[in-house]
């Protein structure tokens, strides 16, 4: 089950304390930048949850 991003908590990448840390951490290219926002490419996600664990805004979670 892929992850979801709470866009309100996330804000724009320019406001992220980790400067888009989730994108940098993801090795499966499941998180990419699109017009300053983080976008999920679900089919690439391998459920490793590194993004969930390391998001400085706790904006990423899993769909139950």
């Amino acid at each position: 089950m892929p992850v979801i991003i709470d866009t309100e908590k996330c804000g724009k990448i320019e406001n992220c304390p980790g400067e888009g840390l989730c994108i940098k951490l993801c090795e499966e290219d499941a998180l990419i930048e699109e017009a300053g926002d983080v976008v999920i490419i679900s089919e690439n996600c391998n459920d490793c949850e590194l993004c969930i664990m390391n998001c400085p805004n706790q904006a990423i979670s899993k769909v139950d």
Binding site: G18, L21, K24, L25, L50, M53, N54, P56
Partner: peptide, 11 residues
């Protein structure tokens, strides 16, 4: 701190 991002040199 964010141990993994630090160890990877991302922050």
């Amino acid at each position: 701190g964010p141990i993994l991002p630090i160890a990877r040199g991302l922050v």
